[in-house]
Design a protein around this nucleic acid. Structure first.
Length: 855
RNA sequence: GCCCGAGUGAUGAAAUCGGCAGACAUACGGGACUUAAAAUCCCGGGACCGUGAGGUCGUGCGGGUUCAAGUCCCGCCUCGGGCACCA
């Protein structure tokens, strides 16, 4: 008899055609009773095509979606293309073509590859962010935020990358001061007029929803976001300037340690602080000016290296310490940044190592305000002195004498005035008491300060949606009416940035000259929007991708949002994922987005997010610059996409990534050959499940239990175990092949569990070998009988003093006493006691082991 | 410097609560089938000692807790990632 052989190419093309014909992956959103929305980060359609890193990410998400579908959910799993942005624009310039003609070809190639991989996408609902039908609504979103007061225009010092020829955000700048896209180019500071989104308005929700577990996200992503937002709790305090010109405002500082205010012996302002010019005395003016000039030439990174010698200059002015009434000198120094807090600090040299170092350098007074408590001493609590060979008493004396700074715990001293007495208090009580006092005296108030800054969305480039704003002849800005959207991007042949801080659209008077409906004349905004705005709402558009009348259908959004599962790379933790959360909160506040999100914050778009690991090749991340990018086409041609998908998931834990080595792919291929052979060639006698040999039936239910658990993602600490699920399926197949009988339930359970990994092969078996007439995608995920996941007998290890001496097969139900008697009766234990040893203790762990302690 | 991961056979890795370390694969060795090779199937497969039964050691390093430690605690080392005068 001729053997059927597994031919992946034939199987895959057959079922892809069948699925398309039967609309298997298409979903009627409105009719769905049990909606489950699976999202993956849509790709940028590069000219090189899809690489296996993309495939790795999408496969993990697709398996999740297919698993949920088999569990009975109506799963929506869309895909689209993120094709605006500097990346496409730069590539187009490099090859001397227009992005508008390159993108469709790239999208066509990506589409071919994505279809080849057999993902469960509903291809009727794709989006392309560069199509006017899409960016019309990106512009509409800008206008909604504009109306809601969440957009403002400001001239600010911005990050400007000379190579990009445009503004970039803090997030898009590398820690070493270079540009994320151009690691060889240092980012400059430039003052440019820019449009900003008020993301900082939402800082508390963005951070607290994580801390309060309102959303279930991968821990590392949460850590990255929380750190990036950087909430510090403290107080704002006003310091009046002594002998200042009339009308000079007080200097406001932010501090996390208002309790140490009695020890504030000087102040430091950022060199860019607006009050510097007003308060600087004539005698100091020249020196201050010179210092400001040196600072302006330095990058933030040069200014803020902790190891650097402290520099600064005295302004000649004094401010009044609001608690002591004493005048304290006001200095400026580069390490105080205008962009954080209020751009001014109070300095407490006895309690802060930076302030102490500064005071040492410039001979400023130090007043001890904390009597150190050494009971939980850590070396970093003290600075300004050496701890070598000193007793706590000696160190304490140095702190009290102002010869060292103490930032550890202790009791307040020297901290009282006529109406406020902190002496003897510990830190927390002193903070509360001081803050309350300041508030009552109108000298300050409690305040939470965030590191997060507003999102500058202006790009002086071509390949993006024009910002829908126009300026009248007085320079006032006005929104473009919604009825005029989209503001179409004009066709241009030369769209190179000139480096003058203006976008290419500024060279097109025919485009930017604007006449409003009421006849007023003006000019359009010539900057375009940041590419991250395009990708901050694409999942809303998937829902209504073919609706020309609105950005999204409110009823469908309420039905489908928030996203049930978002899977993507952690590299977007502080970029895309932060902007997206903000945008949904902003749109909710603006009254145009209601996700019916009752459990979490009503503005949160993603209930769950899981960060997948990185696919490594030759010891480093796959990237074009390293030249180690692998294209999936050849592997699919040789082994089929089912094998590639399953191989990628078998590499290691999905959330930790893996090393792409081809050695093991043959293992998966062999597994599938054996699986195919089992169903098509290996005629087992089919019996009722109850008549299966006990070990086979037990194995079946154990594997169902384990695989279900490995694919579930109940909580963040419940890892995705695709690799171990595959191993269990291999074990089950091995067990199946070693018996002469099988059952229908077993045959269906095994193939159903394989289906999320190898959908085409599963369909071939489901319909071809098992004779079902409906798709495997209408099957039900198998359930397990908990009473069958354990066998009646169990092997127990008998240890003597922790060393394995014997193995016993006993009834699982055996009691502790019975087990102990059995253990005492074994030859090993008998031999020990015969030689005069005495049994001191017996530890019995039912179902596992017995440890006999003898002496 | 700080924070977060990780370190287990030749290799990728596995191991709910502390309870038999190495599941499942890959490479490799042996055998069957074959004229031969491939494919397939069977057996072996942490290291060392031993003819064997068996024994000793073994999860980056050094300590500790425990009847019992890959797992918990303390102190380090290496690699990967993130952050860095944030008041």
């Amino acid at each position: 008899m001729a053997q059927h052989l597994y031919d992946p190419t034939q199987v895959e093309s057959k079922w892809q055609a069948w699925w398309q014909q039967n609309g298997t992956n298409e979903i009627d959103l409105a009719a769905a009773k049990n909606p489950y929305y699976v999202l993956m980060m849509f790709p940028y359609p590069s000219a090189e095509g899809l690489h296996v890193g993309n495939v790795y990410a999408f496969t993990g998400a697709d398996i999740h979606g297919r698993f949920k579908r088999l569990q009975g959910y109506d799963v929506f799993e869309p895909i689209g293309f993120d094709a605006f942005g500097i990346h496409s624009e730069n590539f187009a310039m490099k090859v001397n073509r227009h992005p508008a003609e390159l993108i469709p070809a790239n999208i066509a190639n990506f589409t071919r590859q994505l279809k080849m991989m057999g993902f469960m996408f509903d291809w009727r609902r794709t989006v392309d962010t560069t199509s006017p039908e899409y960016y019309k609504w990106t512009q509409w979103i800008f206008l909604q935020l504009y109306k809601a007061g969440l957009v403002y225009r400001d001239v600010k010092e911005v990050n400007f990358c000379p190579e990009c020829g445009t503004v970039i955000s803090d997030e898009q700048k590398n820690p070493d001061g270079t540009c994320e896209r151009h690691p060889e180019t240092m980012v400059e500071r430039r003052a440019l007029p820019c449009w900003f989104f008020r993301i900082t308005n939402f800082a508390d929700r963005l951070v607290n929803n994580h801390l309060n577990k309102k959303i279930d996200w991968s821990q590392r992503t949460v850590v990255d976001q929380v750190k990036w937002i950087g909430a510090s709790h403290g107080a704002e305090v006003d310091f009046a300037v002594q002998n200042a010109p009339a009308g000079t405002p007080a200097i406001r500082v932010f501090t996390t340690r208002p309790d140490t205010l009695f020890g504030a012996t000087f102040m430091v302002l950022s060199p860019e602080h607006p009050l510097v010019e007003t308060i600087t005395t004539p005698a100091q003016a020249a020196a201050v000016k010179a210092y400001q000039t040196t600072c302006a030439a330095k990058s933030d990174e040069e200014r803020t290296t902790d190891t650097k010698e402290k520099t600064g200059i005295f302004t000649g002015a004094h401010a009044i310490n609001p608690l002591t009434g004493a005048p304290i000198p006001v200095w400026i120094a580069d390490y105080v940044l205008m962009g954080y807090g209020t751009g001014a600090i109070m300095a407490v040299p006895s309690g802060d190592h930076r302030d102490f170092a500064f005071a040492q350098n410039f001979n400023l007074p130090v007043v001890a305000i904390i009597d150190p408590d050494f009971s939980a001493f850590e070396p970093e609590m003290i600075s300004g002195t050496s701890t070598e060979e000193k007793t706590p008493e000696q160190l304490r004396a140095e702190v009290l004498a102002g010869k060292a700074a103490w930032s550890g715990p202790g009791r307040m001293i020297n901290s009282a005035n006529a109406t406020l007495d902190l002496n003897g208090l510990a830190k927390e009580d002193a903070i509360a008491k001081t803050t309350a006092w300041l508030s009552a005296q109108h000298l300050g108030n409690a305040k939470t300060q965030y590191r997060l800054r507003d999102w500058g969305i202006s790009r002086q480039r071509y390949w993006g949606p024009p910002i829908p704003v126009w300026y009248d002849e007085e320079g006032n800005h006005h929104p473009i009416p919604e009825s005029e959207l989209p503001v179409q991007l004009p066709e241009m042949t030369d769209f190179r940035p000139k480096g003058d801080g203006k976008g290419p659209l500024a060279n097109r008077p025919d485009w930017y000259n604007y006449t409003a409906a009421d006849g007023r004349k003006g000019r359009r905004e010539t900057d375009v929007m940041d590419n991250f705005l395009d990708s901050a709402w694409y999942f809303l558009r998937y829902i209504s991708s073919n609706d020309p009348t609105q950005a999204w259908d409110p009823a469908l959004v309420k039905q489908w949002m928030p996203i049930d599962m978002y899977i993507g790379g952690n590299e977007h933790a502080v970029l895309h994922l932060m902007y997206t959360r903000f945008l949904c909160m902003a749109l909710h506040q603006a009254g145009v987005l209601d996700m019916g999100n009752e459990l979490a914050d009503p503005g949160e778009p993603f209930k769950k997010f899981r960060a997948h690991g990185l696919l490594i090749k030759d010891g480093s991340k796959m990237s074009k610059s390293r030249g180690n990018v692998v294209n999936p086409d050849e592997f699919v041609a040789e082994h089929g996409c089912d094998t590639l998908r399953t191989y990628l998931m078998f590499l290691g834990p999905y959330e930790q990534g893996g090393d792409f080595r081809l050695a093991q792919i043959s293992g998966i291929r062999r597994f599938f050959n054996r699986l195919y052979d089992y169903y098509f060639n290996d005629a087992k006698q089919v019996v009722a499940e109850e008549e299966l040999p006990k070990p086979l039936r037990v194995k079946m239910h154990q594997v169902i239990q384990k695989v279900t658990k490995d694919l579930e993602t109940e909580t963040e600490s419940d890892p995705i175990g695709y690799n171990t699920a595959i191993a269990m399926l291999m074990e089950l197949l091995n067990e199946c092949k070693s018996h002469d009988v099988t059952s229908r339930s077993l045959q269906e359970a095994l193939v159903t569990m394989i289906a999320p990994f190898a959908p085409h092969l599963a369909e071939e078996i489901w319909q071809g070998a098992l004779g079902n007439t409906r798709s495997v995608w209408s099957a039900k995920w198998p359930s397990f009988d908990a009473s069958l996941t354990t066998s009646d007998t169990v092997e127990i290890v008998v240890q003597i003093n922790g060393k394995i001496r014997e193995r016993l097969v006993v009834a699982r139900s055996a009691s502790k006493e019975e087990l102990e008697q059995l253990a005492r009766g074994t030859a090993a234990v008998q031999n020990e006691t015969k030689n005069g040893a005495e049994v001191r203790k017996v530890i019995v762990v039912p179902g596992s082991l017995i440890n006999v302690i003898v002496k």
